[in-house]
Amino acid sequence: MTDLQPRSMAELGLFTGVPQYENFARIKDLMPTQAMPASLAPSPWPQGEPVTLPESYTFEGEVRATERFLADTDTSALLVLTDGAVRYEGYWLTGGPDVQWLSMSVAKSFVSALVGIAVDEGHIKSVDDAISAYVPVRPGSAYDGVSIRHVLQMSSGARWVEDYSDPESDIFRLGAVLSGVGTLDDFVASAVGESEPGTVCRYNSGDTQALGALLAAATGRPVSEYMWEKLCEPLGMESPGYWVADSTGTEMAFAGLNLTARDFARIGELYRNGGVWQGKQVVPAQWVGDSVTVAAEHLQPGRPWVGGHTFDLGYGYQWWLPDGDRGEFSAIGVYNQFVYVDPASRTTIVKLSANPRYGASEEEADNRENETVAFLRAVARAGD
């Protein structure tokens, strides 16, 4: 673990309009992290026929310029793969092919994959088990008796406010742990329930931190160590990766993964191919299918709650699911981090960003998540 002092979100100036592209490119130099080496057998992406980005896309009935959008959202990296080959690769600001960028909540989809592997290996008997059968929690607290499945679906019933414009919200309290105010495990153990589990999808980073605690307890290994063996090594990751950690070395499972754009793309391609990588089943096919399927009414697009508003996308096992019949799915993190997959066009796209307006309000005009989906759809469908 790197010997650095934890920093709070306030110290980094998150969600205040302060530019973050300098910070997101060097988190390993700013925060304590657990390191994951590059694969012993790195697997570079093949180069496909280069394509150009569409000059414009349509959002809410308005034609918008691609170049302006990429600049306005402080895009650092944009990587487009088709059939597993690089078709477009661009870097700006502090981005670069060897730069490990902060995932934010894209990390959640990696955690979900690891849970699926742990179930397949027998470390976790069933997603219908109570997560408290594995993770120590206080009696009567939010995760006491709640099924792992409901935690995966952001439907634990735990009280949560994911409002980036409110410094008193739960996401800021969770972030404060990284500056030494308690531990991540204590945060999970003492969470407070609010609604009946399995009835409301409320986006909750605490749920993913609980899944991180589940992985560590069930496998007897740190999340970073388990991920290196089960994902980094078999997927041939070309560069080292890092997990932000608290003062005890516990990984920030909900948002702390740092990888290059090329290595982030591997989770998208893995899931696009049903959990198979170079002929080997890395994540069970059934798990992949369940992860990118809307399994209940409260998970349908327009039903999940993020902060004080509903979101236009549906939810699976820590994956966002755009509406429509193409089977799209995406890992999404704040400040416009995306690993987007469109199976119909055999496309995976990574967008790493530091949108300076993100979190200034709950308005789409600031956060631009729905607009990013529209842009990525335009890129993926350009060859239709």
Rank of each mutant, 00 (worst) to 15 (best):
Q100Y: 00
N367P: 08
F59A: 10
I117Q: 03
G84Y: 02
S330R: 12
N23I: 08
V115D: 05
A85Q: 15
R159P: 03
V63F: 02
E225V: 14
G180H: 12
R266D: 07
R173N: 12
I332F: 12
S179T: 03
S132P: 01
F338L: 05
G17K: 09
G206R: 01
S141W: 03
T2R: 15
W228M: 01
T310F: 00
D83W: 03
C201R: 01
R368P: 08
L79V: 10
V135P: 10
G314Y: 04
R303L: 13
H309I: 09
W101P: 00
D163W: 00
L79I: 10
L174R: 11
T82L: 01
W92C: 04
G90I: 04
A189K: 09
A261C: 03
I124K: 03
P234V: 10
S247K: 14
D144H: 09
V334H: 10
T199I: 04
L174P: 02
W287F: 14
G122E: 02
H298E: 04
V223K: 01
P240N: 13
Y91K: 09
R272C: 09
L14Q: 09
V339K: 05
V137F: 03
S147C: 04
N370E: 15
L78W: 03
A216V: 13
Q100H: 10
L53N: 07
G193M: 01
N355I: 07
P97I: 02
S126R: 11
G314T: 04
A210I: 07
I171R: 02
E328I: 06
E371H: 05
G17T: 11
M31Q: 15
A331N: 06
V151C: 08
S291I: 07
P42N: 04
P167D: 14
W287S: 06
